[in-house]
């Protein structure tokens, strides 16, 4: 087999595999509609405001509920104590409030 043919065959197979995965994504999305609706219902019934992603600190568990002081728990120049605090930006409300004094 010519090298170019082998390469083109690899490209075609990979492309086909990727298309297959995209099709899987579409089917999975349709199959997950019910689960997604259940999560929406739960959020509505329990009046939830946040996703449960980081449970180590209150201000990363409830990102949107954090107040102006959460970024500096101990003193004004203190570094964030928790690893997740380093990878999430401050919530919208804190940025909006700070915008007035910056």
């Amino acid at each position: 087999m010519r090298k170019s043919h082998a390469f083109l065959l690899y490209l075609a197979l990979s492309g086909l595999c990727f298309c297959g995965l995209l099709a899987h994504g579409l089917f999975k999305k349709q199959a997950d509609v019910e689960h997604l609706e259940a999560k929406c219902r739960l959020a509505r019934t329990l009046q939830l405001t946040d996703m449960c992603l980081f449970t180590e600190a209150s201000y990363t568990r409830h990102l949107s509920q954090a107040d102006l002081h959460t970024a500096f728990q101990d003193y004004p120049m203190s570094l964030d104590h928790f690893p997740s605090g380093a990878i999430v930006p401050p919530p919208e409300i804190v940025r909006r409030t700070n915008g007035k004094v910056d």
Binding site: G25, K29, C52, F54, T55, F82, S84
Partner: peptide
């Protein structure tokens, strides 16, 4: 990276978007 120091970490399967 996402778990950090959390003991309780949610296990979830994401819907492909």
């Amino acid at each position: 990276a996402l778990k950090g120091w959390a003991v309780l970490y949610p296990r979830f399967k994401l819907t492909p978007f």
